[in-house]
């Protein structure tokens, strides 16, 4: 039926329009420009065609051709889901993510896990930090007690060790929930995203301590659709999606520093390093809990451990403490 008609892909992102404007649209626009009509990617934001919870199976069946998401948001039925949204302290800097995937073997594990369920893992590489944005200031771990916080499931499971009450709400309801006091804060993103999506307008304080390692952004495709692409288009898809990761790296990296220094909507607070060490220690225990769940998870946790040890030994500028 297709004949000479251009190949069309429908890509749905987990991101809403405000965020997607930055983290995916430029890459898709570049792709369409370079592809010169041989192929066109149509971009859809969160929940546009199918709800994010159904995104994975829609891609698996081919209703959606490709997806940008973390493993967690789209509820992927794989062993690696737990590492998608803020697996605590797994990585510290944005470059840790591509390093782990390209050089430390995570790419292979992800590719294998997703191939098992009929999905092509194209790439990973985007990074977000995870900080608290709250109505009331947090200056010590005790201030976390009883705070109702919107966060990712994995981060929530971990943070509940410090008295945080994780609350799950539809993403669109967060702003209002903060205004009505139903939520005390969010632990969902860095300050760049807080300003971009408007949460900075409805919270007052930003905790500089980075609660968990990183959010990891991926691109996936339906396996058949991927295999049908000629090689040069596969290559173009890879390169352009990498440019999305790259955009996010500098956009976030620059934004985090600039808004901490120049931002006027939120006051910064910090928990002292000595106290914060308790959280890091708890994260290591949490890693072991997760590793005990399966062989694949144990393999990934061991890579995280080895990677972080190497970074510690390498010293500055890789790690300062």
């Amino acid at each position: 039926v297709l004949g000479q008609a251009p190949i069309k892909w429908r890509l749905q992102t987990y991101a809403g329009a405000a965020l997607g404007e930055h983290v995916v649209k430029p890459a898709v626009d570049s792709f369409n420009k370079i592809a010169q009509g041989q192929m066109e990617i149509e971009l859809y934001y969160a929940d546009q065609l199918v709800p994010t919870g159904e995104l994975f199976q829609a891609m698996q069946r081919g209703t959606i051709d490709a997806v940008q998401s973390d493993d967690d948001s789209m509820a992927s039925p794989t062993e690696v889901t737990v590492f998608g949204g803020y697996f605590p302290f797994a990585s510290r800097y944005s470059l840790d993510v591509p390093a782990l995937f390209h050089d430390w073997g995570l790419n292979e594990i992800w590719a294998e896990e997703y191939a098992k369920v009929g999905v092509k893992h194209i790439s990973a590489g985007a990074w977000d930090p995870c900080n608290f944005a709250t109505k009331d200031p947090i200056n010590s771990l005790a201030d976390l007690q009883g705070k109702r916080i919107f966060t990712f499931p994995t981060a929530g499971r971990f943070l509940s060790k410090f008295g945080v009450v994780p609350v799950t709400l539809p993403w669109e309801d967060i702003e209002v929930a903060l205004q009505t006091g139903e939520l005390d804060g969010v632990a969902w993103s860095g300050i760049t995203e807080d300003y971009t999506v408007g949460w900075a307008d409805v919270t007052n304080y930003f905790l500089t301590n980075n609660i968990s390692g990183a959010w990891i952004g991926h691109f996936f495709a339906n396996m058949d659709r991927w295999n049908e692409l000629p090689e040069h288009l596969q290559e173009l898809v890879r390169v352009c999606f990498d440019s999305s990761h790259y955009y996010r790296l500098h956009w976030y990296w620059a934004g985090e520093a600039r808004l901490r220094v120049e931002g006027t909507k939120m006051k910064l607070t910090s928990i002292p390093d000595e106290e914060w060490a308790q959280v890091e220690a708890a994260a290591r225990e949490f890693w072991d809990e997760i590793a005990a769940e399966s062989e694949t998870k144990a393999r990934i946790v061991s890579i995280f451990k080895a990677y972080n040890e190497t970074m510690d030994k390498a010293g500055r500028p890789y790690r300062y403490t």
Partner: peptide, 17 residues
């Protein structure tokens, strides 16, 4: 390519709202 499950997916959208 599975266009038919578009209809049902909307019920999950309804549920989440």
């Amino acid at each position: 390519r599975g266009g038919y499950d578009l209809a049902f997916a909307q019920s999950i959208k309804l549920m989440s709202w």
